[in-house]
Design a protein around this nucleic acid. Structure first.
Lengths: 241, 241
DNA sequence: CGCAGCTGCGTACAGTGTTCGCATCGAAGG
DNA sequence: CCTTCGATGCGAACACTGTACGCAGCTGCG
């Protein structure tokens, strides 16, 4: 604010609620926060930078959001809108697989999600997460599971664990600036040295080095579906015939 | 540094490497950091406070530890020493169960572990984590699994996911200052209201309210073992007869 | 004795989340 | 039309944070 208030009441001088930027609302704040989180990771998001992006001062955000933690909760539930569960009536195994795949996809697309969930867990009661849980519950109880909530917890734990590990790896890849394959290659010497004396690990690394040219993405996909099928097989055994 | 150097060369005036505090070593720094993390959580650990606890200035720590992130890596591997895997030759199902239980026990005993793993993943190559992986690999390959690493990833993903969720909940409990049962009771109204319109969830909450007096710890244990058995059943199917 | 090198630390810098009080502004009420 | 009022934005400030830098002192070696 270098120039003091201009006494000329020109209509043109007055900006009518900022033409491009839609004011400054809770929704726009959350949306832009997610953009920043996706682009630069969880530690690049600060209230000041976020305010700057919205053509607003840092502290203005607090008119719409109580605290940064609350903002993160809102961001989590916002991306949780991407979770999908097929409608009731679908064959349960395919349906659960799709629900798991959609969770993993958004966790990998927003790698900060896992970190936030790891710090605060499922105390979040946002509407989108609730809807996801509800539809999962409907799915499992329609399928005839005697303890639907147990089944849900089991498959969600697996999916969360695997996705968290994958997301953390993706963050490392992004930070390194290399491609996934190059980073693996550059990490191999250290890994092999650390595995010295550990016969099984050393063998596994040696095998991995041989099959190095395999597409890392396809390999991760295969790993995910292998474990998911294991879990679903175990659950299927508990389905009364 | 109020008083200048005392010229009297008294033996008693000179502290011989601080009798109680063992100097200031990487090991002592990591050990004290874990104590602080366990006591007050991940966000209560700052380099200044940690230095103060060790009767040292904040920046002295950087002589032994390159960065705070590296300190966290060291802390993770230090608590990873608590992971146990039964020696080869044990029946595989009981052995894997024990390995899973020990992981969960340390994750719940050090609730900050999950948050750190969630942010940085398994890029950690510390010796204790390596040893854990190695012994798990030995276990699964002795048991005759055709793809030991797939099996390990599956069970570890489940254990990590479940433990992370539990640890986050425990952090919430600790922060609230209430007992686990009291916190659940005080959260029920909000949860039920959020579940309004979601029939299955509302039903589940209603059931939970009826069985409220059940010990929450026992309930969590049961949930954990239910899912673990599901995963192990699914794996057992893949064991060549 | 002199000289390295290692260790501790005071200072400083660039940031962080959040509070507080002031300015502005659109709408409502007389 | 003027006034009041609630909502909104924001500059300044506070108490922190991780960490770089350079200076002091101690220790062991030649």
């Amino acid at each position: 604010m270098t120039a003091k208030a201009n006494p000329v009441p020109s209509v043109w001088a007055r900006q009518q609620s900022a033409p491009d930027q839609p004011a400054l609302s809770r929704a726009s704040i959350v949306r832009e926060a997610i953009v920043m989180l996706d682009a630069d990771g969880i530690e690049a998001l600060s209230m000041r930078k976020l305010g700057a992006r919205l053509n607003a001062g840092a502290t203005s955000l607090y008119r719409h959001v109580a605290t940064k933690d609350e903002l993160m909760e809102l961001a989590v539930d916002e991306v949780a809108a991407e979770f999908t569960v097929p409608p009731p009536g679908s064959p349960w195994r395919a349906a659960v697989t799709e629900a798991a795949v959609s969770f993993r996809a958004t966790a990998l697309g927003h790698p900060w999600l896992s970190a936030v969930l790891g710090q605060a867990g499922l105390a979040y009661l946002g509407p989108n997460l609730m809807a996801y849980s509800e539809r999962l519950a409907a799915l499992f109880s329609d399928a005839g599971f005697p303890e639907p909530s147990r089944a849900i917890d089991t498959v969600l734990s697996y999916v969360i664990g695997m996705s968290t590990t994958e997301a953390a790896w993706l963050i490392t890849v992004t930070r390194s600036g290399k491609t996934e394959g190059d980073l693996i290659a550059s990490l191999m010497p250290a890994a092999q040295q650390a595995a010295a004396g550990h016969d099984h690990l050393a063998g596994a690394y040696a095998d991995a080095a041989v099959h190095a040219p395999v597409d890392p993405v396809a390999l991760r996909d295969e790993k995910f579906f292998y474990g998911l099928d294991v879990v679903l097989d175990g659950l299927e055994m508990r389905l009364p015939r």
